[in-house]
Design a binder for these strands. Structure first.
Length: 417
RNA sequence: GGAGGGGUGCCCGAGUGGUUAAAGGGGACGGACUGUAAAUCCGUUGGCUGCGCCUACGUUGGUUCGAAUCCAACCCCCUCCA
């Protein structure tokens, strides 16, 4: 790939964000000449995004930092239809209220990463429900449908595969790419948006939008996709012990978020520093080349930088300090995640099983029992051996708390209240 | 509308009357080893007031001492034909 002149493409290439580009030279030229508006679409299926979407968010952030205008497209319309690929019968359709609530939750994440406003370089958020819900089928067919080539659609890899294997392909799924293509053109019309970005799995859909743009809007649109990010051992990003790694602070505390990044595999450090922090690349290179146990220093930087970006510098440094006390000094950090329990309950004697369930470290008494059998639970750093043990006022430390641990990494403080 | 295949635990998937809370794998969690890493090895993986009880193999009924397994109806998914 040739060296790009535009800051945006240059930066993204250097940091490893780019998987495919529809017209590298054309886009590069455009981006050196004018402020480009670009978008990425997001589903509204959950009240927060998780780290799986972080790569896309970072692309929008770089876009804005390099002087262009990002659009966050919420899939309020498409979410209402439901994702057809999920064959699970429990894919309950979300209500309009749920979707709106999810949108609000997701918005708070973007507020951390992007500057929204009315100015030329300010980010905007748009919901495709604005146009998709009021589409008239026949009008849509006349305007868009006649330009869509079924011959081409069935050439798409995803479709071809299904047809060759004689697997079912619903008309709804078949239409999804058209709706997404239409989104792109609609955004072009409304905002002058020229570029759509997304994960590599979105390539086909984005290309459909480019084709449609050429046909009905007589303009050249551009596509940029990012590589699928897996950990060095092949797992998908963002799944850990407690489930998804959410970006909203009320669903994943800054401390837990910091821990997530701290536990990065060695072989991922360079990539993650490039993708998920904004450290200069020479600094990334220096950190990533640390050998042996020293790589841990790089992981701490990664964790603090990544956490600072969404939860703020102060929260990130507090998380780092909490971790330092807990893991390096073995001391009790009173900034660990804490739950409050009425003092009377503790004085009366609280069963260990119940206590660990209350703390959210285990899902049930049964799981607590199993963890005790496996030596996985600790109270104030002492392994629990008896599942009938009680926690009482005598366990409250000088700091006024009781520390419950699951394994060596997960700790919760219980505070009498 | 017709013919056929199928719905099992977080996921995949075995199981065609009884020691089946259900093989095996994946994932996940814990332990050991380490560097809060990876790899490897070991353990665990429905709930509860835990050696007993409750809930579970699409749904509802039935047969049986006993059913995920047999029967009936229904729901849903898939393939082919019309």
């Amino acid at each position: 790939m040739t060296a790009f002149k535009s800051d945006f493409l240059h930066t993204l290439t250097a940091r490893g964000f780019i998987h495919q580009l529809s017209d590298p030279e054309g886009l590069d030229k455009l981006m050196t000449e004018e402020t480009v508006t670009a978008y990425i679409g997001f589903d509204c299926t959950a009240p927060s995004l998780h780290v799986g979407s972080l790569l896309q968010i970072m692309m929008l952030r770089w876009l804005q930092k390099t002087g262009h205008r990002p659009i966050v497209l919420m899939g309020g319309g498409t979410t209402r239809v439901g994702d057809p690929s999920g064959k699970d019968e429990s894919r309950k359709l979300l209500t309009g209220e749920e979707i709106d609530a999810n949108k609000a939750g997701i918005h708070t994440v973007f507020d951390k990463f992007l500057g929204f406003g009315e100015g030329p370089g300010d980010a905007i958020m748009i919901d495709n429900a604005d146009w998709l819900l009021s589409l008239h089928y026949v009008d849509f067919l006349r305007e868009v449908g006649r330009h869509v080539s079924v011959n081409q659609m069935i050439q798409r890899e995803s479709v071809k595969l299904r047809l060759e294997r004689e697997q079912h392909l619903s008309f709804l799924e078949f239409n999804y790419m058209i709706l997404q293509a239409y989104d792109f053109v609609e955004l072009y019309r409304r905002t002058g948006c020229r570029l759509q970005m997304g994960g590599s799995d979105q390539w086909g859909n984005i290309i459909s939008g480019i084709d449609l743009g050429r046909r009905i809007a007589e303009t050249e649109l551009f596509a940029l996709t990012s590589p699928l990010i897996t950990t060095a051992s092949g797992a998908k990003m963002g799944k850990t012990a407690a489930g998804a790694v959410w970006l909203n602070a009320d669903m994943k505390s800054p401390y837990e978020y910091w821990q997530f990044w701290r536990n990065t595999e060695d072989d991922d450090v360079r990539r993650f520093l490039s993708l998920f922090t904004e450290l200069p690349l020479d600094e990334v290179g220096r950190l990533a080349s640390l050998g042996g146990a020293e790589i841990n220093e790089a992981k701490k930087v990664l964790a603090t930088e990544a956490t600072a970006m969404i939860h703020g510098r102060a929260a990130a440094e507090e998380a780092a300090e909490t971790a330092r006390k807990t893991f390096e000094e073995g001391a009790l950090a009173d900034t660990l995640p804490t739950i409050e329990v009425p003092a009377a309950e503790i004085e009366a004697g609280l069963g260990v099983l119940v206590a660990f369930v209350k703390a959210g470290l285990v899902a049930s008494n049964g799981e607590a029992r199993r963890q005790i059998r496996g030596g996985g639970l600790k109270v104030n750093d002492a392994t629990v051996t008896d599942e009938r043990a009680q926690i009482s006022g005598a366990d409250v430390t000088a700091e006024g708390v009781i520390k419950l641990s699951l394994g060596r990494k997960r700790h919760i403080l219980v505070k009498p209240a």
